[in-house]
Design a protein around this nucleic acid. Structure first.
Length: 924
RNA sequence: GCGCCUGUGGUGAAAUUGGUAGACACGUCAGACUUAGGAUCUGAUGCCGUGAGGUAUGGGGGUUCGAGUCCCUCCAGGCGCACCA
């Protein structure tokens, strides 16, 4: 009997389906394990070999835990809302709901062929109203909550009126337009709130664009100009959680690099906020409608991490959008300032951030007063200061900051020197190991001491205070798009937001025929006037972003069909945190931070009992594509082989990897591609072959380097595919896809098959008792597999399987006592062949329900060891000794050894290094 | 610029706490069985050297009886962040 993988895999996949083998019950009596994959976005391109890498890894772990007796939750679902589906809909006219459905079916079919142990009855789709009902519900919780810094917890918005809290002056404080006033103030605290913010606005397309849709300052579609436009948008107040997100990171079992990324993103810096008064010459102020009496005294708040450099300030810079710019600009400078503002507003934030060479800016004509010296400091605006970071204004210290230095040089501003013995004639000095001087009361102090003293003085004079600043900004939560969750919000007559109640949920996304933008920058939903003008009020026409649904999906898998709550608390108490979360590092700061924030919110409000969603995170590496090229000689139809291409002027053309064997191009297949476009091609060969060039790139359709798992599975089977993906290397490392080694893994499975079957006589498994040696081989194997799985070192477990198969083969061991346990250890990796062979040897129940073999360490005890013997650290021979032999006897035997004596060259021994079971070293 | 990670044969890679570097595969070479081989099996395979032996984990230095592993430094590649105040 031959190893007919296609038949076997089909048979067992059907069996597992029919028998609901992967159905998971909420059985509170069993120990649990929650193994989660980052669910995919169902794109039209289908799965390529890169996708399953993480899924196979988590599948192995989940199956292993099940064999170990755990109740394992290992679900799968789809992140189904999002921009690509909508863009595709605009291009093809197909409704996103339709394409999403088709794509999901295709994904499920492909996933099914790989033999994952998902419980599909728990499938979650973020675009399903039964799911997004609860996304909307959680949004309402965020909307109806605030972050109380005193308790360091999320609380219901009502408590904000309690004594000691920010709005304890109550609901009755403001006369007149009371309700909307209170609502206006509440918006300053809600965790989901609205504020004015800039978007990428494309006038020509009449739509708001995502950063990704803007390329070099113009729209990706059509190349139209894009400008920044203020629009009222929803935000999540994630900044309130900054410190908590930062601190609890320490206790999470995440890769260090990923934690570092999150820390950078949160961007904590400690310094001081200082207020500089603006010197106002009334006649110069452009804002002339103010009378003397009302004329305010302006102050500019700046944040600095270097309060010690306060005496080095020689000018100030505001972001062009800073709210004070218009008020302080003098009449003489007004026109120049406005022109500069116009220039910067035409540039996207990305562009402004990318600008490193040209220095630009404009003087406002106004001066600030230095709080300690009383000196007048010119106030400038420049795009290098961002409105969204810190206070949107800086005190410029050109001698200590490179950008300030360049700015001062460019505009010929003063560069005071405040660091002792530092030459600043060429460049600024940002080194913190300096002594401050020329700085009044902080002269002759170190940076640290000077900072401390400066802050004390600043606080004493009530012009500022110590301040912790975070780089992280609140998360934009509005999208002017169709294919997303509608907000459960309507607006009253005066424009105040009114939250819908739980019983209004889900607020279903109305069916639209077209998805073009609505009027005035609004999303497509604004076109559905019947829907917008509801009896409850005017509906919000923005939708939620892609990360809304993915911020809590791990909770829904626990209790996916509950229509009373997002997840029953008893059930979430049981399944609790995700024990292992496997996914790509591209979600390091987006998805992971948002879902951590949502988890903390739900926890604080008492809906779940844990405040971090994921206990352990594994980042699988990317599988890149290995592209192949042919080289066309310019202006000809001739193609030259890689080794000879330098002799010609050639154009490099991607060629489909699927018609290249290794590096050798299949010439006939090449002539047929693209409807015989290359049918007349002529080739310049080397050694009779056409050798292609290669490059490692992202796997993508346009690079013709996509390898589809379906083809591999057809050729080698799912079990080979699964094991080969794991055999490629460490899970977390990125690697190009290469089919070169797959034969080795396939050969191993065939060898394993032959331990059970002889080609002529059939099954050859015997009931003979195993020898001690065979048992030792088995238990060494069990130990290694167990260790490797727990460390997610699946590449080495695959080699262990090869090792034991080779060993049992050379021992001619066909004993059930050995082979059955080996099969069980194989289940996580190659479930189909394991199940088949398990039934072949006569088992009537599924191997999925078997117990993982219990390791017996006593079988592994060695009583002797072959010691490598080194003289002066160089291994010269090997000698075997009993492990309980005393050191003196070993030492004696070694010194008497001929080879040892030869290498000691008659010199006396200085030291004898001996550790049981390790190399012996004789030092002379 | 800052932070994190990686660097080992022709290739993918392996190597608990420092303890025989290159497991396991791919590829290549030689052989066996074959009408055949893209099946299967056996053997060889880091480099230099006929050999004894020498030498080798990106380069240089250090700690140690002993370093791929620890420390310093430099180089190369990858990822993230950034006119970040």
């Amino acid at each position: 009997m031959q190893y007919n993988f296609n038949e076997i895999e089909k048979k067992w996949q059907a069996y597992w389906n029919e028998n609901n083998s992967y159905k998971v019950e909420n059985d509170f009596s069993k120990p649990k394990c929650y193994v989660l994959d980052m669910f995919p976005y169902p794109s039209g391109a289908g799965l390529h070999v890169g996708h399953p890498l993480g899924y196979i890894a988590s599948d192995i772990y989940a199956r292993y835990k099940r064999l170990k007796g755990f109740n394992v939750l290992h679900p799968m679902g789809f992140d189904a809302f999002g921009l690509p589906a909508e863009q595709y809909a605009i291009e093809t006219g197909q409704h996103p709901a339709t394409t999403t459905k088709v794509n999901i079916e295709r994904y499920k079919e492909q996933l099914g062929k790989i033999g994952f142990c998902y419980d599909w009855s728990r499938e979650v789709k973020t675009s399903d109203p039964n799911y997004y009902k609860w996304t909307q519900w959680i949004f309402l919780q965020l909307y109806n909550s605030w972050y109380n810094p005193k308790t360091n917890k999320v609380e219901k918005i009502e408590t904000i009126f309690d004594a000691g809290n920010p709005m304890s002056d109550g609901r009755n404080a403001e006369p007149g337009n009371q309700a909307s006033n209170i609502e206006h103030r509440l918006m300053e605290y809600r965790l989901a709130y609205k504020k004015e913010s800039y978007v990428n606005w494309c006038e020509a397309l009449g739509t708001v664009l995502a950063n990704d849709e803007v390329v070099n300052g113009v729209s990706e579609r059509g190349g139209h100009p894009v400008e920044r436009k203020l629009m009222s948008q929803w935000f999540l107040r994630i900044t309130a959680f900054a410190e908590r997100l930062l601190v609890s990171l320490d206790n999470l079992d995440f890769p260090e690099s990923l934690k570092e990324m999150q820390r950078n993103w949160i961007g904590k810096s400690v310094g001081a906020e200082i207020k500089f008064d603006v010197k106002c010459q009334l006649s110069d102020v452009s804002n002339t409608d103010k009378t003397d009496k009302q004329h305010p005294t302006y102050g500019i708040n700046v944040f600095t991490t270097r309060p010690d450099t306060i005496f080095g300030v020689s000018f100030m810079v505001l972001a062009p959008e800073h709210e004070l710019v218009n008020s302080i600009t003098t009449a003489a400078q007004k026109q120049a300032i406005e022109e500069y503002q116009k220039f910067t507003s035409s540039r996207s934030e990305r562009e402004r951030l990318a600008e490193t060479k040209t220095i630009s800016g404009c003087f406002t004509g106004a001066y600030a007063i230095h709080p300690f010296t009383g000196k007048e400091i010119p106030i400038w605006i420049s795009e290098y200061v961002l409105a969204s970071y810190g206070t949107g204004a800086i005190m410029a210290v050109p001698c200590g900051d490179e950008r300030d230095y360049a700015f001062a040089k460019h505009f010929n501003l003063e560069i005071p020197s405040i660091f002792k013995d530092i030459d600043i004639s060429e460049k600024a000095c940002s080194d913190k190991n300096v002594i401050i001087f020329n700085s009044d009361f902080i002269s002759d102090l170190s940076v640290k001491e000077a900072s401390k003293l400066a802050i004390e003085k600043i606080e004493e004079q009530k012009i500022g205070s110590r301040k912790v600043n975070y780089r992280m900004r609140d998360a934009g939560f509005s999208r002017q798009r169709y294919w997303g969750e509608p907000f459960p919000i309507v607006y009253g007559e005066n424009g105040t937001a009114i939250a819908l109640t739980d019983k209004d949920l889900p607020l279903e996304l109305p069916f639209l025929e077209t998805y073009s933008a609505g009027p005035n920058g609004k999303g497509p939903l604004a076109n559905a006037t019947d829907w917008v003008n509801s009896s409850q009020g005017t509906r919000e026409t923005d939708t939620m972003p892609g990360y809304a649904g993915s911020s809590w999906y791990y909770l829904r898998y626990m209790d996916p069909h509950n229509s009373d709550t997002f997840c029953d608390k008893k059930i979430s108490d049981y399944w609790n945190q995700v024990d292992v979360y496997v996914g790509g590092a591209e979600h390091a700061v987006g998805h992971l931070l948002y879902s951590r924030m949502w988890c903390k919110t739900l926890h604080d409000l008492g809906f779940i009992s844990f405040d971090e969603p994921y206990k352990k995170l594994i980042n699988q590496g990317m599988i890149g594509g290995s592209s192949r090229f042919v080289y066309r000689i310019k202006n000809t139809n001739q193609y030259v082989s890689n080794g000879l291409k330098n002799n010609y002027d050639v154009t490099e053309i991607h060629v489909d990897v699927n018609i290249v064997d290794g590096y050798e191009l299949d010439l006939e297949a090449f002539k047929k591609i693209k409807n015989n476009e290359y049918s007349n091609a002529e080739f310049i060969l080397e050694n009779g072959k056409y050798i292609c060039g290669e490059a490692f790139e992202k796997m993508s359709k346009s690079k013709y380097n996509v390898v589809n798992p379906d083809d591999i599975i057809l050729q080698y089977g799912a079990d080979t595919f699964r094991m080969y993906e794991m055999f490629l290397g460490p899970l977390e490392m990125s690697k190009p896809w290469d089919t070169k080694g797959i034969e080795g893994v396939h050969r191993f499975l065939k060898k394993l098959w032959r331990l059970f079957f002889d080609e002529t006589t059939g099954c050859i498994v015997t009931n003979e008792a195993a020898t001690a040696e065979e048992l030792k081989t088995l238990h060494k194997h069990i130990k290694k597999i167990q260790q490797d799985i727990e460390n997610f070192a699946f590449n080495t477990s695959v080699s262990q399987f090869m090792i034991i198969t080779n060993e049992l083969g050379s021992m001619s061991c066909h004993k059930r006592e050995i082979l059955e346990p080996v099969l069980i250890t194989l289940v996580p990796f190659a479930p189909h062949i394991a199940e088949e062979l398990w039934s072949v040897v006569g088992n009537k129940t599924s191997i999925l329900d078997a117990q993982f073999p219990v390791l017996d360490e006593s079988l592994l005890v060695e009583n002797s060891f072959k010691y490598p013997v080194a003289i002066q650290g160089k291994a010269r021979t090997e000698m075997e000794f009993a492990l309980d032999l005393p050191q003196e006897e070993i030492e004696k035997a070694i010194l008497e050894n001929e080879i040892v004596q030869k290498w000691m060259e008659g010199k006396p021994m200085k030291k004898f290094i001996f550790k049981k079971g390790m190399m012996i070293n004789v030092v002379i």
